[in-house]
Design a protein around this nucleic acid. Sequence first.
DNA 1: TATATACTGAACCATTAAGTTCAGTATTAG
DNA 2: CTAATACTGAACTTAATGGTTCAGTATATA
Lengths: 114, 114
Amino acid sequence: MVQYISHRLDASFAALSDPTRRGVLEQLGRADASISDLADRFHMTLTGMKKHVSLLEAAGLVTTEKVGRVRICRLGRGMLETEAAWIDQQRRIWTERFDALDAIVQELKQGNPT
Amino acid sequence: MVQYISHRLDASFAALSDPTRRGVLEQLGRADASISDLADRFHMTLTGMKKHVSLLEAAGLVTTEKVGRVRICRLGRGMLETEAAWIDQQRRIWTERFDALDAIVQELKQGNPT
DNA sequence: TATATACTGAACCATTAAGTTCAGTATTAG
DNA sequence: CTAATACTGAACTTAATGGTTCAGTATATA
């Protein structure tokens, strides 16, 4: 399971590391869109955008549905849940360690005044 | 400024997309470490680990200090703040849109019973 | 039916990434 | 002083990314 999560984080953080793909997520937060819509908005070929969307889909951040000749893209449910959880955990650990260090510094100040 | 943040998110999400580098962050959450320590722990050459650490440092996630011949690596202050903020914002937008959609569905159910 | 639209897939190109080895410099220990 | 340690930098290999073009299929419109 840990392996599974790690692999998922690989994919989603890699997906988020590209400004176009973050832009697509932001756009899909405003409204669903077709591949053509997105390609237009980000000044890219259809094929290029298709690859970005496929990648986002593989990372579980976006879902798509083909309706007629159009593929509709939406944000995925539970989007960024795992990613937020990992980041929060790291920040929690860091804060704890920092607070502990701070406490030691305070203690030294008390016990060892200039 | 938006440009600046975007560039920073590029770098940090790319940094987070590698399991070794996420491992390094987790490890540094437990204790500071030298490059050699980390290279050992992750079964990699010194040179290889150095590159990962440099990348993490460039992304602002880690700071280092050279003491004698050893380079000590620690978590950076304010680590993952910007990244957590971006993710939280996206999740907030998504939740709002989802709730709004849900409300519409409810309304349709009320006004248009089977 | 003929044409335009929307996507899909294969192939290609340039750049970056992850890792290595090897040769060096600086610092510490004996 | 000598030897071992810890890092640094350059060069190289292999693979992945981000983008393209071109040729195709499927669907909608005139």
